[in-house]
Design a protein around this nucleic acid. Structure first.
Length: 539
RNA sequence: GCGCUUGUAGCUCAACAGGAUAGAGCGUUAGCCUCCGGAGCUAAAGGUUGUGGGUUCGACUCCCACCAAGCGCGCCA
């Protein structure tokens, strides 16, 4: 049952009775006492149609056959019309979950469309930061959700392996290498001073003193990429595709793309530089793509990269960017638009930064002072599950406060354990039921209408919402609704457990309740799977 | 200076396209272990939704102004 169905039905009842109606909405009720669905039709129709009284309209709806079939009662309160679903309709969710198992909630909403999600894409100049961690967790979860909803997802990491930053990396590593051998060498002030470069330098044997910085750059890149891949793996994030900027440049794609724009008359020369007329596509000023010194700005290869993505035939491109790139959204969208790709098909999600705390104390990050907590260090301290859970609990575009102390705790303060505990508890009950002789077939054939306690109905209703929660997450490209949902479901379950025995003297009731617990296990498990959080066997 | 984002309970956050008495969790306070795992449960207190106007049956939500915080405004990536 969906709100849209009810709305459609009401619309039909009204038009059948030749009643003129304007806009009204049907929505899930905000409170239990308001039933399952509510509509504001009575408030709305006052302004458009005075010839029918509220009472008459209510009885028209109440007496409709379809309404009578689906609802226990329909009543007016505070000007709203509230719909109370029949319990019998709710029991069907158990059959559905038991038969579909881990596939419950899957949909074909994405229709097999191809989507490319590009994220993390950190320069290979140093270890991954907390900010990258949040992007990684978000990108991975979003990929899983889209995949679950019928999209064909590719995860890609764009390696910015050219330019000034890479030059500095080579120079910095060479200096480290020479210093280890007692040769004095300066690390440029804007170079890389982290201890990790010293470790990498130690891996190189004697005899490379005369090699150029290019050699050191390449070596550092390989080493750092290996570390990055390791960190991502530990977080449970696997990319299908690694795309190198360096190779893009070598392929001549950048020149080719600029020619494409040129052919459309979107390129011009000014002050000895080459400009892209991005203002034609909504940017607030035109952008330089080739500087006076004839090297490209970052924008040129970026446009070429997106042209490449487009050519690979995706229906949707998703980029996860840090807030420092928020200002570039307009220009890259302009470019994509100019290249003939609909800009709505490029979704850029800004993943906000994370501030770390230890209790009350804010951990200030300073690269220069060497006060820096990497993603790896965070995972070592709180574990990948807790890290991911906290990263995914908030909307991507809202700033995240991450308290390491809470994430470490194994108490009720820490929601990740609360959820995992619910999962383990469900598992344990099923095990217990099995020991008491309740078989799979008993569960399947149980009489679910014995689940009459109001908490039981509440649990079933919540289980029923899961598919729409997931679909909504996919449609909005937002994963943050999943974690609060399982948290809430877990809470209801814990509360239920405390009050009622699942396996008791009454075999019939025991079977029905065991079936419900199995459904809880399936849904909590599926949700954890979508978030990429592990499902513990025991704790 | 211009632009974007944000401002909701002591803290961290919800509130679906403008709907009902603004909800959770943590923290605080008071309770609950012969019983499927207490990493759990029950209850209480806690609010002028940054401020001031406007739009209307109705505003956390939309509009205007102001205040505060963060980010962005390079021929840097």
């Amino acid at each position: 049952m969906k709100a849209e169905e009810i709305k459609a039905k009401i619309s039909k009842i009204l038009s059948d009775s030749k009643i003129y109606y304007g806009n009204f909405s049907v929505f899930p009720s905000s409170k239990k006492e308001f039933g399952d669905f509510s509509t504001n039709i009575l408030l709305k129709i006052r302004h458009t149609e005075k010839s029918i009284s509220s009472e008459k309209l209510i009885s028209l709806i109440q007496n409709d056959r379809w309404m009578k079939e689906n609802f226990e009662r329909i009543e007016e309160k505070n000007g709203f019309l509230n719909f109370f679903l029949k319990n019998t309709l709710i029991y069907s969710v158990i059959n559905e979950i038991l038969s579909k198992g881990q596939d419950y909630g899957k949909s074909a909403a994405g229709n097999g469309k191809k989507v490319l999600i590009e994220f993390v894409s950190a320069n290979p100049t140093g270890p991954l930061t907390i900010a990258h961690g949040r992007q990684a967790a978000f990108g991975e979860a979003l990929s899983r959700i889209l995949g679950f909803c019928g999209w064909q997802v590719t995860k890609e990491y764009y390696i910015n392996d050219c330019g000034r930053q890479m030059d500095l990396l080579g120079i910095s590593l060479k200096s480290r290498y020479l210093r280890l051998r007692g040769i004095s060498a300066e690390i440029p002030e804007d170079g890389y001073h982290g201890e990790y470069l010293n470790e990498i330098a130690k891996k190189l044997p004697d005899g490379y003193e005369a090699r150029d910085t290019r050699f050191f750059e390449e070596f550092a890149k390989q080493e750092i990429m290996a570390r990055i891949k390791n960190d991502l793996k530990e977080l449970g994030v696997i990319f299908e595709s690694w795309f190198s900027e360096n190779e893009l440049r070598k392929s001549g794609k950048v020149e080719e793309t600029i020619r494409m724009l040129e052919n459309k008359g979107l390129i011009y020369q000014k002050d000895n530089a080459i400009w892209f007329r991005s203002t034609l596509y909504g940017d607030d000023k035109d952008r330089v793509i080739r500087k006076k010194d004839m090297t490209y700005t970052y924008l040129a290869p970026d446009i070429a990269y997106h042209q490449n993505k487009i050519e690979r035939g995706y229906d949707l491109l998703v980029n996860l960017w840090g807030p420092d790139h928020a200002g570039y959204v307009a220009r890259i969208k302009a470019a994509v638009n100019a290249l003939g790709f609909s800009p709505e098909k490029l979704q850029i999600i800004i993943v906000q930064l994370t501030t770390l705390y230890r209790g009350k104390e804010k951990i200030s990050m300073s690269t220069r002072k060497g006060q820096f907590i990497t993603l790896k260090q965070l995972m070592d301290e709180v574990g990948p599950d807790a890290a991911k859970f906290f990263f995914l609990f908030r909307k991507a575009d809202s700033h995240l406060d991450f308290d390491i102390e809470i994430a470490r705790k194994k108490t009720e303060e820490n929601p990740i354990y609360y959820i995992q505990y619910a999962y383990v508890r469900a598992k344990h009950i099923l095990q217990f039921a099995k020991e008491k002789g309740i078989k799979e077939t008993d569960i399947m054939r149980a009489d679910f209408s014995l689940l009459r306690e109001s908490v039981e109905i509440e649990i079933l209703k919540k289980l029923k919402r899961f598919p729409s929660i997931v679909q909504k997450a996919a449609m909005n490209l937002e994963v943050s609704t999943i974690a609060p949902y399982i948290l809430d479901l877990s809470k209801t379950f814990h509360s239920y457990y405390q009050k009622f025995r699942v396996v008791n003297e009454d075999l019939q009731i025991s079977c029905a309740r065991t079936a419900m617990v199995k459904c809880l296990l399936v849904v909590i498990g599926a949700a954890l799977e979508l978030l990429g959080i592990s499902k513990p066997e025991k704790m």
